[in-house]
Design a protein around this nucleic acid. Structure first.
Lengths: 201, 201
DNA sequence: ATCATTAATTATCTTTTGTTAATCTCTTAG
DNA sequence: CTAAGAGATTAACAAAAGATAATTAATGAT
């Protein structure tokens, strides 16, 4: 057996996200519990009604989360890609069955971690509380910022802002999903893009 | 000196919000530090650039938080009233100077608490961590729900949802502020209200 | 009682969005 | 190479929203 199989630096590096103050013993526990999961394009990581308490770290790939509106249309509400965390907030934060679907838009390689195990380890490492708080706050900040884009900006400004904030994933995601995220229809986004292009020249 | 001046049940009751597992000593510390502050209609609790680390518990009254958009218009982003907590998230959560104004829309009676003192007390009462997490999560849940109203609902549906969720404060707040919160103009809200009224009969 | 102020409504017009359907492009499976 | 499917764009029309200004309603101050 190779040393790399024992230590698994890949996993270690990924787990680093959860805190730089982990005890060796806990790192081992986490690495043992964390396992790699692959998803093909179109696969669902989570479906409505799911209750499995697990956190995904995206090592490679890109996912979308979506809900169904009253007409039954899929409305994409968020995108996540490499080095980001994905989980059902309904399940983990609010102890409710998932209301959202999470779907792979590209072939994905994930690190799946048992959430409750992670929580218990965090509880035993007081230094990690800061980390947990940091993650929650970062998420809250994202959410506030998003609300502000709806309240303060027009759809066109919202799109420009999105492009500036996420230039890297623009060409990895169908525009119709980005339209959903901006709260407009794909047709309308297409017109906005045309308008912006006309202004530029 | 009256017994009530010593114990101050009013304050105690208000502070209860921060946790039911406080040590007597900590309760005393908090009560000593918490002081009542009154604001007249129109007064500012917090202005852009402020850095004072304080949390308000609303005992009576109603406030709005607003930002300035690129044109310099005041855009109301949230409302809070009795038994809710108000603070600058920029200051307390993100350690940045406030970007938002917070203004009393009615004569307000607040309990002002030093945030860092509160934090240190929470840190010394492990049972309170649960409380703190609960508050953060509740806030996150509110934020997610708000985002969903923008992504999933039309302005008209958003208004109906708002009315259902907040029937009590509708007649305490000028509609123009509610329009801001819904991400539309006051004129448009007026038309929506007319449209809804027409449908009802 | 009157005036001034502020909010809400209404009117008018322009711009944008939603909706539906058709067309175009691109990729992929056979 | 062709056909099928998905996504993006375009078109055409209806509905809604933004902008601006005028009007009405309500409130408080003098």
């Amino acid at each position: 057996m190779d040393l790399f199989d024992i230590i698994d630096f890949e996993k270690l590096k990924a787990l680093y996200k959860f805190g730089r103050a982990l005890h060796l013993k806990d790192i081992q526990t986490l690495i043992k519990s964390a396992h790699k999961r692959s998803f093909s394009q179109g696969d669902y990581l989570i479906q409505e009604g799911d209750t499995k308490r697990e956190v995904f770290l995206i090592r490679r790939g890109l996912i979308r989360a979506f809900s169904l509106n009253d007409k039954g249309d899929e409305i994409t509400t968020s995108l996540r890609w490499e080095n980001q965390i994905v989980a059902s907030t309904d399940i983990l934060l609010f102890n409710e069955p998932a209301r959202q679907y999470i779907q792979a838009l590209e072939p994905c390689e994930m690190l799946s971690i048992d959430f409750d195990l992670l929580q218990s380890i965090v509880s035993q490492n007081p230094k990690l509380e800061a980390n947990r708080k940091h993650l929650l706050r970062a998420e809250l900040k994202r959410a506030y910022h998003r609300i502000n884009t709806f309240v303060l900006l027009s759809p066109e400004e919202r799109y420009i802002e999105f492009v500036h904030a996420n230039p890297d994933i623009l060409n990895r995601v169908p525009n119709k999903y980005i339209a959903n995220i901006l709260g407009i229809t794909p047709v309308s986004l297409s017109r906005i893009r045309k308008r912006i292009a006309a202004k530029r020249k």
